[in-house]
Amino acid sequence: MFTGLVQSVGQLQHLSQYQLKITCPTIQDPVLAGIELGDSIAVDGVCLTVEQILTRGFIAAASPETLAKSTLGKVSENGKVNLETSLRVGSKIGGHFVTGHVDGTGQLESAEQTGDAWEICFRGISPKVARYIVHKGSIAVNGISLTVADCSNTGDWFQSAVIPLTYAETNLHCLQPGDLVNLEGDVLGKYVEKFTRYGLNTDANAAAETTMEILGRERTNVKDEVDIDPSLTFLAEHGYL
Protein backbone atom coordinates (compact mmCIF):
# COMPACT_ATOMS: atom_id res chain seq x y z
CA MET A 1 0.00 0.00 0.00
CA PHE A 2 1.23 3.47 -0.96
CA THR A 3 -0.06 7.04 -0.75
CA GLY A 4 0.96 8.52 -4.09
CA LEU A 5 3.54 10.91 -2.62
CA VAL A 6 6.67 10.37 -4.71
CA GLN A 7 9.90 10.32 -2.69
CA SER A 8 12.44 10.22 -5.48
CA VAL A 9 12.94 9.93 -9.23
CA GLY A 10 15.24 7.13 -10.33
CA GLN A 11 16.45 5.65 -13.60
CA LEU A 12 15.28 2.33 -15.02
CA GLN A 13 17.38 -0.17 -16.94
CA HIS A 14 16.30 -3.47 -18.50
CA LEU A 15 18.74 -6.17 -17.42
CA SER A 16 16.65 -8.80 -19.19
CA GLN A 17 13.10 -9.18 -20.46
CA TYR A 18 11.65 -9.43 -16.97
CA GLN A 19 14.43 -8.12 -14.72
CA LEU A 20 14.66 -4.39 -14.00
CA LYS A 21 17.38 -2.33 -12.36
CA ILE A 22 16.39 0.92 -10.67
CA THR A 23 19.12 3.42 -9.77
CA CYS A 24 18.48 6.20 -7.26
CA PRO A 25 20.08 9.67 -7.52
CA THR A 26 22.35 9.20 -4.46
CA ILE A 27 23.24 6.57 -1.88
CA GLN A 28 21.45 8.74 0.72
CA ASP A 29 18.21 8.61 -1.24
CA PRO A 30 15.15 8.27 1.05
CA VAL A 31 13.95 5.25 -0.94
CA LEU A 32 17.08 3.35 0.11
CA ALA A 33 16.79 4.16 3.81
CA GLY A 34 16.18 0.89 5.64
CA ILE A 35 15.51 -1.01 2.43
CA GLU A 36 15.35 -4.80 2.82
CA LEU A 37 14.93 -7.80 0.55
CA GLY A 38 11.26 -8.43 -0.14
CA ASP A 39 10.24 -4.81 0.37
CA SER A 40 7.60 -3.33 -1.91
CA ILE A 41 8.48 -0.20 -3.86
CA ALA A 42 6.22 1.61 -6.30
CA VAL A 43 8.02 2.25 -9.60
CA ASP A 44 5.97 4.66 -11.70
CA GLY A 45 2.97 3.45 -9.73
CA VAL A 46 3.70 -0.26 -10.17
CA CYS A 47 4.32 -2.28 -7.00
CA LEU A 48 7.57 -4.24 -7.40
CA THR A 49 9.40 -6.48 -4.93
CA VAL A 50 13.06 -5.86 -4.10
CA GLU A 51 15.06 -8.96 -5.06
CA GLN A 52 18.56 -7.54 -4.78
CA ILE A 53 19.90 -4.43 -3.05
CA LEU A 54 22.58 -2.33 -4.74
CA THR A 55 24.69 0.53 -3.46
CA ARG A 56 22.50 3.10 -5.22
CA GLY A 57 19.42 1.14 -6.07
CA PHE A 58 17.81 -2.25 -6.34
CA ILE A 59 16.81 -5.01 -8.76
CA ALA A 60 13.25 -6.24 -9.17
CA ALA A 61 11.40 -8.60 -11.46
CA ALA A 62 8.32 -7.68 -13.47
CA SER A 63 5.90 -10.37 -14.62
CA PRO A 64 4.58 -10.55 -18.20
CA GLU A 65 1.21 -9.35 -16.87
CA THR A 66 2.83 -6.29 -15.27
CA LEU A 67 4.73 -5.40 -18.41
CA ALA A 68 1.61 -5.82 -20.53
CA LYS A 69 -0.65 -3.69 -18.32
CA SER A 70 1.84 -0.91 -17.52
CA THR A 71 4.46 1.27 -19.20
CA LEU A 72 7.46 -0.40 -17.54
CA GLY A 73 8.20 -2.52 -20.60
CA LYS A 74 8.16 0.62 -22.75
CA VAL A 75 10.33 2.94 -20.64
CA SER A 76 13.47 3.87 -22.55
CA GLU A 77 16.88 2.86 -21.18
CA ASN A 78 17.74 5.08 -18.20
CA GLY A 79 14.27 6.55 -18.37
CA LYS A 80 13.04 8.49 -15.34
CA VAL A 81 10.64 6.66 -12.99
CA ASN A 82 8.86 7.84 -9.85
CA LEU A 83 9.70 5.93 -6.65
CA GLU A 84 7.84 5.51 -3.37
CA THR A 85 8.35 3.05 -0.53
CA SER A 86 5.36 1.26 0.96
CA LEU A 87 3.24 2.84 3.66
CA ARG A 88 4.30 2.00 7.21
CA VAL A 89 2.17 1.99 10.33
CA GLY A 90 2.16 5.49 11.78
CA SER A 91 3.23 7.16 8.53
CA LYS A 92 1.44 10.26 7.29
CA ILE A 93 -1.14 9.74 4.56
CA GLY A 94 -0.89 12.87 2.47
CA GLY A 95 -2.31 11.57 -0.81
CA HIS A 96 -4.78 8.68 -1.08
CA PHE A 97 -4.56 4.91 -0.78
CA VAL A 98 -2.68 3.55 -3.80
CA THR A 99 -2.24 -0.22 -4.16
CA GLY A 100 0.39 -0.25 -6.89
CA HIS A 101 -1.83 -2.41 -9.10
CA VAL A 102 -2.15 -0.46 -12.34
CA ASP A 103 -5.58 -0.59 -13.98
CA GLY A 104 -4.49 0.68 -17.38
CA THR A 105 -2.73 3.44 -19.24
CA GLY A 106 -3.50 6.82 -20.74
CA GLN A 107 -1.72 9.41 -22.87
CA LEU A 108 -0.56 12.89 -22.00
CA GLU A 109 -2.45 15.36 -24.15
CA SER A 110 -1.01 18.65 -22.86
CA ALA A 111 0.72 20.34 -19.94
CA GLU A 112 0.34 24.09 -19.62
CA GLN A 113 1.53 26.39 -16.86
CA THR A 114 -1.20 28.70 -15.64
CA GLY A 115 -0.39 31.00 -12.73
CA ASP A 116 0.93 28.92 -9.83
CA ALA A 117 -0.02 25.54 -11.25
CA TRP A 118 0.28 23.23 -14.22
CA GLU A 119 -2.89 22.09 -15.96
CA ILE A 120 -2.25 18.58 -17.27
CA CYS A 121 -4.68 16.75 -19.55
CA PHE A 122 -4.81 13.04 -20.38
CA ARG A 123 -6.72 11.18 -23.09
CA GLY A 124 -7.03 7.63 -24.42
CA ILE A 125 -7.82 6.32 -20.96
CA SER A 126 -8.19 2.55 -20.68
CA PRO A 127 -11.87 1.61 -20.10
CA LYS A 128 -10.83 -0.39 -17.02
CA VAL A 129 -9.83 2.82 -15.25
CA ALA A 130 -12.07 5.39 -17.01
CA ARG A 131 -15.13 4.27 -15.01
CA TYR A 132 -13.40 5.23 -11.75
CA ILE A 133 -12.55 8.76 -12.86
CA VAL A 134 -14.96 11.25 -11.32
CA HIS A 135 -14.91 14.99 -10.78
CA LYS A 136 -12.86 15.86 -7.65
CA GLY A 137 -11.98 12.19 -7.22
CA SER A 138 -8.49 10.74 -6.74
CA ILE A 139 -6.35 9.17 -9.45
CA ALA A 140 -2.78 7.86 -9.43
CA VAL A 141 -0.75 8.92 -12.48
CA ASN A 142 2.64 7.20 -12.65
CA GLY A 143 2.22 6.65 -8.94
CA ILE A 144 1.43 10.32 -8.20
CA SER A 145 -1.71 11.07 -6.22
CA LEU A 146 -3.69 13.68 -8.17
CA THR A 147 -7.16 15.16 -7.92
CA VAL A 148 -9.39 15.15 -10.97
CA ALA A 149 -10.19 18.81 -11.66
CA ASP A 150 -12.33 18.08 -14.72
CA CYS A 151 -13.28 15.03 -16.76
CA SER A 152 -15.60 13.76 -19.46
CA ASN A 153 -18.75 11.85 -18.51
CA THR A 154 -17.17 8.59 -19.66
CA GLY A 155 -13.83 9.26 -17.97
CA ASP A 156 -11.83 8.83 -21.19
CA TRP A 157 -10.45 12.35 -20.69
CA PHE A 158 -9.48 14.18 -17.51
CA GLN A 159 -7.52 17.16 -16.29
CA SER A 160 -5.56 17.73 -13.09
CA ALA A 161 -3.99 20.84 -11.59
CA VAL A 162 -0.46 20.14 -10.37
CA ILE A 163 1.54 22.44 -8.10
CA PRO A 164 5.05 23.43 -9.32
CA LEU A 165 6.79 21.32 -6.64
CA THR A 166 5.03 18.12 -7.72
CA TYR A 167 5.63 18.90 -11.38
CA ALA A 168 9.35 19.52 -10.86
CA GLU A 169 10.05 16.71 -8.37
CA THR A 170 8.38 13.90 -10.36
CA ASN A 171 8.75 12.67 -13.92
CA LEU A 172 5.72 14.69 -15.03
CA HIS A 173 8.05 17.37 -16.35
CA CYS A 174 9.73 14.76 -18.56
CA LEU A 175 6.55 13.77 -20.37
CA GLN A 176 5.78 14.81 -23.93
CA PRO A 177 2.35 14.85 -25.60
CA GLY A 178 1.50 11.30 -26.61
CA ASP A 179 3.60 9.66 -23.89
CA LEU A 180 1.90 6.84 -21.99
CA VAL A 181 1.33 6.97 -18.23
CA ASN A 182 0.25 4.36 -15.70
CA LEU A 183 -3.18 4.92 -14.16
CA GLU A 184 -4.77 3.44 -11.06
CA GLY A 185 -8.30 4.29 -10.01
CA ASP A 186 -9.27 4.95 -6.41
CA VAL A 187 -9.62 1.61 -4.63
CA LEU A 188 -12.63 2.93 -2.68
CA GLY A 189 -14.50 3.37 -5.95
CA LYS A 190 -13.79 -0.25 -6.86
CA TYR A 191 -15.29 -1.53 -3.62
CA VAL A 192 -18.35 0.70 -3.99
CA GLU A 193 -18.82 -0.62 -7.52
CA LYS A 194 -18.64 -4.23 -6.35
CA PHE A 195 -21.00 -3.71 -3.42
CA THR A 196 -23.47 -1.97 -5.72
CA ARG A 197 -23.29 -4.70 -8.34
CA TYR A 198 -23.58 -7.66 -5.99
CA GLY A 199 -26.11 -5.93 -3.78
CA LEU A 200 -28.61 -6.67 -6.56
CA ASN A 201 -27.40 -10.24 -6.99
CA THR A 202 -29.95 -13.05 -6.49
CA ASP A 203 -27.72 -14.87 -4.04
CA ALA A 204 -27.34 -11.72 -1.97
CA ASN A 205 -31.12 -11.20 -1.93
CA ALA A 206 -31.66 -14.81 -0.97
CA ALA A 207 -29.21 -14.41 1.91
CA ALA A 208 -31.06 -11.31 3.06
CA GLU A 209 -34.40 -13.13 2.94
CA THR A 210 -32.95 -15.99 4.97
CA THR A 211 -31.65 -13.53 7.53
CA MET A 212 -35.07 -11.89 7.73
CA GLU A 213 -36.70 -15.28 8.31
CA ILE A 214 -34.28 -15.95 11.16
CA LEU A 215 -34.97 -12.54 12.63
CA GLY A 216 -38.68 -13.25 12.34
CA ARG A 217 -38.37 -16.53 14.23
CA GLU A 218 -36.31 -14.83 16.88
CA ARG A 219 -38.98 -12.18 17.23
CA THR A 220 -41.65 -14.87 17.66
CA ASN A 221 -39.63 -16.78 20.22
CA VAL A 222 -38.88 -13.80 22.42
CA LYS A 223 -41.26 -14.26 25.35
CA ASP A 224 -40.78 -10.82 26.82
CA GLU A 225 -41.65 -9.23 23.44
CA VAL A 226 -38.41 -7.27 23.18
CA ASP A 227 -38.29 -5.77 19.65
CA ILE A 228 -35.43 -6.51 17.26
CA ASP A 229 -33.21 -3.48 16.75
CA PRO A 230 -34.70 -1.62 13.71
CA SER A 231 -31.20 -0.97 12.41
CA LEU A 232 -30.59 -4.72 12.12
CA THR A 233 -33.81 -5.10 10.17
CA PHE A 234 -32.76 -2.32 7.81
CA LEU A 235 -29.33 -3.90 7.23
CA ALA A 236 -30.86 -7.30 6.60
CA GLU A 237 -33.35 -5.86 4.11
CA HIS A 238 -30.49 -4.32 2.16
CA GLY A 239 -28.27 -7.39 2.06
CA TYR A 240 -25.71 -6.49 4.71
CA LEU A 241 -26.51 -9.31 7.16
Rank of each mutant, 00 (worst) to 15 (best):
D156R: 10
E77W: 06
S110A: 14
A168C: 12
V141G: 01
A168W: 09
V75F: 04
A62F: 00
K69C: 11
H96L: 08
W157A: 02
G90W: 05
Q107N: 14
G143A: 04
T114C: 13
Q113T: 13
G106P: 09
L67H: 00
G79H: 08
G106W: 07
V102Q: 02
I139F: 10
N142H: 10
I139K: 07
G143Y: 00
T99F: 05
F97D: 01
E65D: 08
I139Y: 09
L146S: 00
G95A: 08
Q159H: 10
C151Q: 02
K136M: 12
L146Y: 02
N171Y: 12
H101C: 05
A140C: 05
G73D: 01
E77S: 12
S110H: 10
S91R: 12
G115D: 11
T85P: 03
S145K: 00
K136S: 11
D179L: 03
N78A: 13
H173G: 11
N78D: 09
I163G: 01
R123E: 12
C151M: 04
A62Q: 00
E109Y: 14
A68L: 06
G137A: 09
W118E: 04
G90K: 06
D179S: 12
I125Y: 03
A168M: 13
A168P: 11
K74D: 10
I120S: 06
L175G: 08
H96Y: 04
F122P: 00
W157T: 08
H101V: 04
S152W: 06
F97T: 03
Y132H: 12
S160M: 11
Y132M: 08
F122N: 02
I120F: 12
L87E: 06
V141Y: 05
H96I: 05
R88Q: 14
V98F: 12
T105C: 14
F122S: 03
I163P: 02
A140L: 07
R88D: 05
I93V: 15
Y132V: 00
G95H: 07
A111F: 09
A168T: 15
V181G: 00
V148A: 01
E112S: 15
S160L: 05
K128G: 05
F122E: 01
T166S: 13
N171S: 14
D150A: 14
A130T: 05
E119D: 14
T99S: 15
T166F: 04
V98G: 07
A161R: 15
P177I: 10
H96R: 09
I133M: 08
N82G: 09
E119L: 15
I144C: 09
I144P: 01
L87C: 11
G178N: 05
T105G: 10
L108A: 08
T71Y: 01
G94W: 05
H101T: 06
S70L: 03
L87K: 11
K128S: 14
Q107G: 06
A62N: 00
I93S: 03
G106A: 15
V75N: 00
A117W: 10
L165K: 13
G115S: 10
P64M: 02
V148D: 02
F158K: 04
G143S: 04
N82P: 10
C174G: 11
K69Q: 13
T71C: 07
I120T: 10
V81D: 00
L180K: 10
